[in-house]
């Protein structure tokens, strides 16, 4: 399972994005983080070739949220055979936008002195959940009413034995904010909001019944195509 950061935002363990056999000996593992509003791509480069690697550079294809490197890929010294280096690449969201399928798909090109290599990875959507995503209560109620029912999507989060307060605080660590909490007929109803870096708001209702490990998540958004990935992010944060 993943590890938390100081701010509480969920960080998945690094996985292999580019196996050495597909990149003439260069292996790339990585994960994504968001801490205090700064998004990073945390990379591990390993040289499994017989020759030294130099002249690294990285580039992203256009993507749904305009994610782009905010600095060049800095590998300070040549990478010798069997050597591994850890790099934290800062990202911003001012790059070119193109809607990807799935929405969180990122296509990456990495070059070194040997060749150019390409890979795709999926980023957890919460890296684009902003810190000021708590919607004012009156606006929440008006927006909830205003978004048509066709735009509501419902999901089950199974096997999540957390109570409402634990759920609330864990989600807040990843910029999903509880706006109101009510108890109706024994079940807790959390009303939550989050905002994406492109200004899209997502409103949520999370139902928690005592003794039932399955939660019901209802999402309302004017851009309902984000709902599936938002649901997956809830699952990832709550189950890890």
């Amino acid at each position: 399972s993943g590890v938390g950061t100081l701010s509480g935002s969920y960080v998945a363990p690094k996985t292999v994005w580019l196996p050495a056999m597909k990149a003439k000996g260069l292996e790339i593992s990585g994960t994504f983080t968001r801490q205090g509003g700064t998004i990073s791509m945390d990379l591990q480069l390993t040289n499994k070739a017989l020759q030294v690697m130099t002249d690294f550079a990285i580039q992203f294809n256009r993507n749904s949220f305009g994610l782009a490197p905010a600095a060049p890929l800095q590998v300070h010294a040549p990478l010798s055979p069997n050597q591994t280096v850890e790099i934290s690449l800062p990202l911003n969201t001012v790059g070119s936008v193109m809607k990807m399928e799935p929405l969180n798909n990122l296509q990456v090109a990495v070059k070194n002195n040997i060749d150019v290599f390409y890979f795709s990875t999926l980023y957890p959507l919460h890296i684009v959940f902003v810190e000021d995503g708590k919607m004012e209560r009156q606006l929440f109620l008006a927006t909830w009413k205003d978004i048509p029912n066709e735009n509501e999507a419902q999901f089950q989060i199974r096997d999540c034995p957390l109570n409402a307060d634990a759920v609330s605080s864990r989600l807040q660590g990843s910029n999903i904010f509880t706006v109101a909490k009510r108890n109706v007929e024994g079940q807790d109803m959390l009303y939550q909001s989050l905002k994406l870096t492109n200004g899209i708001w997502v409103l949520a209702e999370l139902r928690i019944q005592p003794g039932n490990p399955n939660l019901t998540l209802s999402l309302k958004c004017r851009a309902p195509e984000v709902s599936q990935q938002v649901f997956q992010t809830y699952e990832t944060i709550l189950k890890n």
Binding site: Q138, L141, A180, R182, V184, E185, M189, Y191, E205
Partner: peptide
């Protein structure tokens, strides 16, 4: 919290969602 009517509005929302 100030009693601005919003507490009541959230209760009504939660109620309506439980018993539509």
């Amino acid at each position: 919290e100030l009693d601005d009517g919003l507490d009541e509005a959230f209760s009504r929302l939660a109620q309506s969602r439980t018993n539509p």
